[in-house]
């Protein structure tokens, strides 16, 4: 088969709804786009453990402590599933981690914002995990089998992440004056970063058309963001919180809540490494990697001495 015929056969498979599996023929650009997306996604889960992790030791009840630890642990697990999915494309986890620690790989910019109060934990669950679920529910239909399967597992587990956050924020909106204030303050700080999670506008998103054509994504960044805004505005209004967007309005003709413009300068600045916590997040990961080197070596040596590993 010629390259063109292979490409046609490949696109026909995707059109039929078949999953592409490791070992199947795929265009190099498909492989590269997937490695880029999946590894970024994996890094986001791993970096995402850090902003919440600093509150594990301050959770105000034993139940909240259990819930938050289970959630942070899940994020590690989700990173694990995603690295696995990327590994099936021929890249190793060591290579992906190197790229992250060297600053060559991106991850979701939302995790470069600081968690300043306990209410941020609830708001991250509701808003940030809510945004992630919006994206991941779509990716569960991805044409690449290992990525789709990782997403199915992740979505099933992540519903708990969002709901525990909702539970908290709903409670704080009905709680003490300080709790109410904390909840509103958290929304004020996390609203815009969570809208940025869907990425640049379609017009400035160079990969979008090809990703959709090959069944990696089925919706554009702006479509996903709009669905998310509609859902969240209605939810937050219901619990009596104010969306920190003076330009927000309801467009009756489309049935959409139209938000004001995202601060794209800030978006690109944070994506490119100059956010409030980029340096701190990468430093934490580098330290974990360096401090763990002797541990990984010791177990490798133990296995090697016994003909395993």
């Amino acid at each position: 088969m010629t390259e063109t015929e292979q490409l046609q056969a490949f696109e026909a498979r995707i059109a039929r709804g078949e999953k592409i599996e490791p070992g199947d023929w795929m265009p190099d650009a498909y492989r590269q786009q997937l490695i880029r997306m999946i590894s970024q996604h994996a890094h986001s889960e791993i970096i995402g453990m850090l902003p919440e992790g600093v509150w594990l030791q301050r959770a105000p009840t034993l139940r909240r402590k259990l819930v938050l630890l289970a959630k942070v642990q899940d994020e590690g697990g989700h990173g694990q599933y995603l690295y696995h999915a990327a590994e099936t494309l021929g890249v190793t986890r060591a290579e992906m981690i190197d790229a992250l620690l060297a600053g060559r790989a991106k991850y979701s910019s939302v995790f470069n914002y600081p968690t300043l109060t306990w209410a941020d934990i609830g708001m991250i669950g509701w808003l940030v995990d809510g945004a992630a679920i919006q994206n991941q529910t779509m990716l569960a239909h991805c044409s690449y089998g290992p990525y789709a399967r990782a997403m199915v597992r992740i979505c099933a587990e992540e519903t708990f992440h969002k709901k525990q956050g909702m539970e908290q924020i709903i409670r704080y909106t009905r709680g003490t004056p300080r709790q109410k204030q904390m909840a509103q303050d958290a929304l004020n700080r996390w609203w815009w970063p969570s809208l940025m999670m869907f990425g640049p506008h379609d017009a400035t998103s160079p990969n979008s058309a090809q990703l959709i054509r090959w069944g990696i994504k089925t919706k554009t960044n702006d479509e996903l963001r709009q669905d998310f805004v509609n859902k969240m505005v209605s939810d937050f209004h219901a619990v009596g919180l104010t969306i920190p967007d003076p330009d927000l309005y309801y467009d009756a003709s489309s049935g959409n809540w139209i938000s004001g413009e995202i601060n794209w300068d800030e978006f690109w600045r944070v994506v490119k490494g100059d956010g409030p916590c980029n340096a701190e997040r990468l430093q934490a990961r580098r330290e974990a990697q360096e401090n763990g080197a002797w541990v990984r070596e010791a177990l490798a040596a133990y296995a090697a001495a016994r003909g395993e590993g």
């Binding site: 791993i46 402590k65 630890l69 289970a70 942070v72 694990q80 763990g292 541990v295």
Partner: peptide
């Protein structure tokens, strides 16, 4: 509580998850 301090900082990802399990059990 002490072991939860390893979450996100363990020597390898699998152990991040395993050690968090131990901590969850203790809690």
């Amino acid at each position: 509580h002490r072991n939860s301090e390893w979450a996100g900082h363990a020597p390898i990802l699998e152990e991040d998850i395993a050690f968090a399990n131990l901590a969850l059990d203790e809690l």
